[in-house]
């Protein structure tokens, strides 16, 4: 279990900053998800922790030891961490047990101890009967478990996971998510989990770090990211929030009064001074109402049935398309509808 600290770390590939001045403190034993669209730099950040990349500027330290800085870096093989690769990277010429025991044999762990730890790790993932199989004889989910057992056998302080569920089907994904959480709890190791799937990040992680274009957007508890996004990117990316322009009138005690298309609305959040700002709206915090002066109005341009509710899209002039979660019979396409704002969040400027 170790703390991982990034201080103003920059990594360039050619002329683009894959990781741009990122400072991040990953706490001892926490489950941190690195979330972002593809190409945002999250995998590079993970590979910086592993030591596959060396920072061009800034420092990376484990606890109180610097492991990476420009021109000097501790080699991955000396960092004592474990990693689950997107492709699993199981060595095809070794049996399951040999795969799991490789790091122990590299570290000269005596055979009886090694065999005990291998069978423990295999038992932990429920593959004790598959020890002598070759990776190609296993299903996708089983390979995933072998990759996990290979990590566990090392008893590492830090476990890195690079989109480990990307190649599995939805059902297996949910099972494996539970397994990962369980192993996190049992091993006590620091988990850093890279994913582009926000549901996965939100449901598993203690904290989520959202990245975009090499920069850290926000780090926080999943609930805080959802309720109180700090940037437009986070608001749109997490939970597909709608970001609309507003005019702030007054701010007091964590609330603001803002004008949304002329309509006065009370929203959560704080603004230093009155003026233009951006608010984040969510479908479940909007309501379809009869058109009138106290609501936003516009024609219904789309209805999409989701099971428990219907998402009704209303085109409001001066605001844009608003998606509203609606139970009961939805209004017809083209019909004029009103949208009432129940709750909203003012993005910090």
């Amino acid at each position: 279990m170790a703390r991982v600290r990034f201080e103003a770390v920059t990594k360039r590939f050619g002329r683009t900053n894959a990781v741009d001045a990122v400072s991040l403190d990953i706490r001892r034993g926490e489950f941190l998800a690195l979330l972002g669209p593809s190409g945002c730099g999250k995998t590079t950040l993970l590979r910086l922790i592993a030591g596959f990349e060396t920072p061009d500027a800034g420092t990376i330290s484990f606890d109180d030891t610097i492991v990476g800085q420009a021109s000097r870096s501790v080699a991955p093989e000396d960092r004592g961490l474990a990693m689950v690769f997107q492709s699993y990277a199981l060595w095809p010429h070794m049996s399951v047990a040999e795969n799991v025991g490789f790091s122990l044999s590299v570290r000269r762990v005596a055979r009886p101890e090694r065999e005990r730890r291998v069978s423990e790790a295999l038992a932990a993932v429920g593959l004790q009967d598959f020890a002598s199989r070759r990776p190609h004889e296993l299903s996708g989910g089983q390979r995933q478990r072998v990759a996990l057992a290979r990590c566990l056998a090392m008893r590492p302080g830090i476990v890195l996971l690079d989109e480990p569920l990307a190649n599995l089907d939805t059902h297996l994904r949910e099972t494996m998510q539970r397994e990962f959480r369980r192993f996190h709890g049992e091993s006590g190791a620091t988990f850093v989990y890279v994913t582009h799937d926000q549901t996965e990040a939100m449901s598993m992680a203690d904290r989520v770090a959202v990245m975009d274009r090499g920069q850290l957007q926000q780090v926080g508890h999943p609930r805080d990211l959802y309720r109180e996004p700090s940037t437009e990117m986070v608001a749109r990316f997490v939970g597909r929030g709608m970001v609309v322009p507003v005019e702030v009138e007054r701010s007091h005690d964590g609330f603001c009064e803002v004008r949304l298309d002329g309509l006065l609305v009370c929203v959560l959040g704080a603004a230093k001074e009155p003026g233009p700002g951006l608010a984040c709206l969510r479908p479940e915090n909007l309501e379809i109402a009869a058109p009138g002066d106290d609501v936003l109005c516009g024609p219904v341009v789309d209805t999409s049935y989701q099971g428990a509710a219907t998402i009704v899209t209303v085109l409001v002039a001066g605001v844009g398309e608003l998606r509203v979660q609606h139970t009961g019979t939805p209004p017809r396409l083209g019909e004029q509808a009103g949208v009432r704002v129940l709750d909203a969040w003012l993005l910090p400027s």
Partner: peptide
């Protein structure tokens, strides 16, 4: 060969000679 096979061995603590020999 997938480069991750080599990277996985690095993470497991294997130095270059060991990786060339075993992986």
């Amino acid at each position: 060969l997938e480069p991750a096979l080599d990277e996985a061995a690095r993470v497991a603590g294997a130095g270059p000679l060991r990786r060339i020999w075993s992986i």
